[in-house]
Design a protein around this nucleic acid. Structure first.
Length: 256
DNA sequence: ATGTCACCTGGTAGGTGA
């Protein structure tokens, strides 16, 4: 049995103790992190190493930044999307125990009218093109991270208010479907789930207390892995911590 | 309720991004 997880930590400098606590309680085979917000020289390798974790990291100043934490050392590590020139540190991939793990911090997009939305669309197209090649080389592949896309209305606490808004536009949802069309499956929807399951709640508006959130953090598994998935869940507990990230971890369990 | 949090620059706060 293997477990893989994703968590947008919104600053690893702030959240490192919570990440180490979570890993101690959830000894997954690999955890991908988003929004580390650390330059590579500041990455806390020693702290992860002392706790028995291998790490690969890819960051920049102030924004973005991703990492791959694993029990076994990841091999064939790739940073960002091969073939898509990008100033922003958003992707880290590696092979862990024979499974290709791709962790991504997808662009937010800000608003459908903004230049950042155009960047998001181009980035998603670049990601898809690269994944075609990754899937050719790696039958067993897990794509996970903060997609910044709520795939369906049931992934949104107020789909009427959010209709056409960022994370919920038809263009973003079409990109999500095109990722699925590569031969990937949203592991969360392989199982019956509690209604109103979200992975992100705005810090504002008492959103967590009112359970007003979106499901924008996802784990997609390749066809070869799909039949082996036995569970997928969102761990809301860390969102109740003091000084929580605004995102909750998502975990998938794979048989064999 | 645009009601928060994190980070930066440049300052005895204000802007940006999410």
């Amino acid at each position: 049995m293997k477990k893989f997880a994703t968590w947008n930590v919104n600053s690893l400098a702030v959240r490192l103790p919570q990440v180490l606590d979570w890993l101690a309680a959830h000894p997954v085979d690999a955890l991908v992190l988003q929004e580390t917000k650390l330059t590579d020289d500041k990455f806390p390798t020693a702290e992860f190493g002392a706790a028995g974790w291998q790490v690969q990291w890819f960051g920049q100043k102030t924004y973005n930044g991703v990492a791959l934490v694993s029990r076994e050392r990841a091999t064939d590590v790739v940073r960002n999307i091969t073939g898509f020139a990008d100033e922003q540190a958003r992707v880290i991939a590696g092979t862990v125990d024979g499974i290709r793990v791709v962790g991504g911090y997808f662009p937010n997009g800000q608003s459908p009218e903004s230049e950042k939305f155009t960047y998001k669309m181009n980035w998603l197209t670049g990601l898809r093109g690269w994944l075609v090649e990754e899937l050719k080389q790696h039958e067993n592949l897990v794509l996970m991270g903060d997609f910044n896309i709520a795939p369906e209305d049931r992934d949104v606490y107020d789909p009427v208010a959010w209709a056409g808004q960022i994370h919920c536009t038809p263009e973003e949802r079409e990109h999500f479907r095109q990722l699925v069309a590569l031969g990937l499956t949203d592991a969360f929807r392989l199982f019956e789930q509690p209604p109103k399951s979200w992975s992100w709640w705005d810090y504002r508006n008492l959103a967590f207390r009112k359970n007003q959130g979106l499901r924008i953090d996802h784990i997609l598994v390749s066809d070869a892995l799909k039949a082996r998935v036995t569970a997928c869940e969102i761990d809301k507990l860390p969102r109740k911590n003091e000084r929580p990230s605004d995102h909750a971890p998502v975990i998938v369990t794979i048989d064999g």
